[in-house]
Amino acid sequence: MNLFSDIVVRSPWLYRINAGSCNGCDVELATTACIPRYDVERLGCRYCGSPRHADIVLITGPLTLRVRDKVLRVWQEIPEPKVTVAVGICPISGGVFRGGHSIEGPIDRYIPVDVNVPGCPPRPQSIMEGVLLAKKIWLDRLNGIAPGHKEERHVSLP
């Protein structure tokens, strides 16, 4: 198995979750994903429509109370080993929305984040750097170099 995974480098599939974002990061993610100018597929990644196929998940938005459980459910559906990327300052720290009555973030209160890409919104190239970093972590996890086993990574609701 190890030999096989050494020879064959798999391609991570990307999935994005909007956790109550203002659209900025989502539009930039769509731009990064879907148009030839940024062409994320060059990095050996592609977007998929189902969390069950995903390897790298990109989360935007400050995590509102109303999406919290839905986001967590979708996140749990993604098979291990997965890598979580927080895109924009909102999921990382709450950004300008921190302290709002329906803000549940920062997202690492609930979900173990691996990569942060701050910006408001980050430019597509910056998002691509984040994806590259996430891909590296993901490959390390596949090869057992980096931690990230199921038992260590749990999500709990308060």
Binding site: N18, G20, S21, C22, N23, G24, C25, V27, G61, P62, T64, R66, V67, K70, G95, V96, F97, G99, G100, H101, S102, I103, C120, P121
Partner: peptide
């Protein structure tokens, strides 16, 4: 789902901070 309580937040930020806050109502 995207209700962030921004109108309540606006009454906690000063007039200048609200310029930036309102810019983040929506990025389009």
């Amino acid at each position: 789902h995207v209700h962030r309580g921004m109108e309540a937040l606006a009454t906690k930020r000063n007039l200048f901070q609200n310029i930036v806050l309102t810019e983040r109502v929506c990025s389009l």
